[in-house]
Design a protein around this nucleic acid. Structure first.
Ligand code: FES
Ligand code: FES
Lengths: 169, 169
DNA sequence: CTCAAACCGGACTGAAATGATCCGGAAAAG
DNA sequence: CTTTTCCGGATCATTTCAGTCCGGTTTGAG
């Protein structure tokens, strides 16, 4: 009943991309450093997102990844399903072969409803909804390190001034 | 992102109990036959449900299980959480230690909303809601077998129609 | 043209969760 | 005292998860 780490990392990695101007190409290493994600794992995940048309990749020197569309055009559902495959709360809801338990199964009906609710939440949340309020620890640490390194440089805007609360209508 | 088989079997087993008058004691074997569930697995699951106060067990000959409350008083959420533990769509929502990613994490907020929706659906569905339209394959097969048998042999007093007359206090 | 930078993608691995079984033990009925 | 039935801990096989590795391919710079 849990989202996988791959999906978690995927969403987080994309917020890092979405924090930049659309089209800016960023290397995996940069994204990993910002979001504290194992590098080779994020590589794999970005491959899936590339195949799904959510990011675009560029090889060779100067290469990396950028978003393929506006963050507001990318739903959390797209992202998660690109990584984990279709969301399904139960094997019987997987759209291929029915279950052995019963023809008009009450359990399946219940789980189908729950599954729809989840997908609704994910579908109606875009990447841009996720980007604003999220300040990854990786970035915070980088800012701190920069500050400690040269006392002359003023610190970046404090992370804890962000106070927005979550609402989904 | 899936419910476990244990939870699935648990709900199904309880619908089998709920199909009977409250307080009727049924053996594991009977439930397994009706719902097509591996016997020793259902045994384990019923232990959890017993500890959670959803069913009551009776040992010794004539023993078995019965519901501890009215089916309308048992929510799907209760059942599932008794078996799987608290529902959580992500480790950061597990109510103990926060996550390493970020203090005001957007992903967690999103998943918290989705999780609430799921729990709402489960909470507002009772066992009696599930019982009505569910006709397990096990029962269907038993009916078919009885019918086929009675074509060749005179009808015998069906053993499984005998209802015990006592209840667990 | 050559080389280094960067992603591609399949094979692989260790660890954990899942699905299920087994068996000795305890309680209740007869 | 014996049978029946559940208890509960140990055990086990399989699958999934989380993550790594490495040779291959593409690209750009010099
Ligand atoms: S049909 Fe498979 S559990 Fe409902
Ligand atoms: S704090 Fe853990 S993913 Fe949000």
């Amino acid at each position: 009943m849990q989202i996988t780490r791959a999906a978690e990392y995927g969403v987080l990695g994309l917020t890092a991309l979405a924090r930049r101007p659309l089209g800016e190409v960023v290397m995996i290493d940069t994204l990993c450093a910002e979001e504290d994600i194992p590098r080779s794992f994020l590589g794999k995940i970005l491959q899936s997102l590339n195949r799904a048309g959510i990011v675009r990749s560029a090889r060779g020197s100067g290469g990396g990844f950028c978003l393929a569309k506006e963050p507001s055009e990318i739903s959390a559902l797209e992202i998660i399903e690109a990584i984990e495959g279709p969301i399904s709360l139960q094997r019987c809801l997987d759209e291929d072969l029915g279950c052995e338990h019963s023809t008009g199964c009450a359990l399946c009906s219940l789980l189908a409803v729950a599954q729809d609710r989840v997908k609704d939440v994910f579908r109606t949340t875009s990447l841009s909804d996720l980007t604003g309020r999220h300040i990854p620890n990786g970035l915070v640490r980088q800012a701190r390190d920069r500050h400690r390194e040269s006392e002359s440089t003023p610190p970046v805007e404090a992370a804890d001034t962000v106070t927005s609360t979550w609402t989904i209508n």
